[in-house]
Amino acid sequence: MSNPQQRKQQMSVLDRLQRYLPQLVIAPPFLLLVFFVYGFIAWTGIISLTNSRMLPTFDVQGIQQYVRLLAMDRWNVAFDNLLIFGSLYILFSITIGCVLAVLLDQRIRAEGALRTIYLYPMAISFIVTGTAWKWILNPSLGIESYMQKLGWESFQFDWIVNRDMAIYVVVLAAVWQASGFVMALFLSALRTVDEDIIRAAHLDGASTTRIYFGIILPSLRPVFLSAFVILAHLSIKSFDLVVALTNGGPGYSSTLPANFMYEMAFRRNQIGLGAASAMMMLATVAAIIVPYLYSELRAKRHG
């Protein structure tokens, strides 16, 4: 039998354990996160300052890899492609998604089925999307040959093998995949809009178009912002779609920075250059995410 004093001590150990339990549970994943995410970001940052080739070295040389990178045509093509791809992808996904959401919001029949049909592409992996669109757009297999077989001999749709147009094919496939998701995002937001607002606007004499574009969509600013941020970071890290659809070709005309990074770091034994391009991508993401987080957190503090 334990005397009361001993028991008191036992209790206090248990109490202490209970008090520190949350920290104890949180600590291991937190440390792993710090090490594997932020640790490796720092590691990549250091590597990008060295002239590592096949194996990493830690002999810091300065910014020469960045100078090399910015002088490479391949990188500049990839970065220009990112600008084209990113802006068109975001623009079309949001526009199409938004219009689909507004149309589906009209209390139509079979809405559930249609919603699933439009949302479904998001459930498919980029590799599958890329492969399917590769077949559809292949001039000798897909749309072009089909239309020609139907009798339209002069029909041409060969963007996928055209140096100047290949990146737009990537946009096409990516928009097909993402606009359903954007639609779901907008539809759920539209459903939270007070129906009385629409009624009031009807009584005020506004047309349905005017109600959507003048009142409802402007009040969905946070949803636009979320959609933008999600699509922006998706576009910057796009990699597999390009691999499956065009494999960066013809030549390197449709590569994106992520493909460039993979090519340099893991195929051409240019780890330093690859690391430098990875840091450039990180900076691009940060340029978008940081202002977003800042505005979100600030809004919460003021809210």
Partner: peptide, 30 residues
Amino acid sequence: VHPKNRDIAMVFQSYALYPNMTVERNIAFG
């Protein structure tokens, strides 16, 4: 007859103000 042509104004329980407009534009919208 469409609601806007009935020359009727309505005040709603939820107020139904247009969230993206200032009070002035809310009132002036009609």
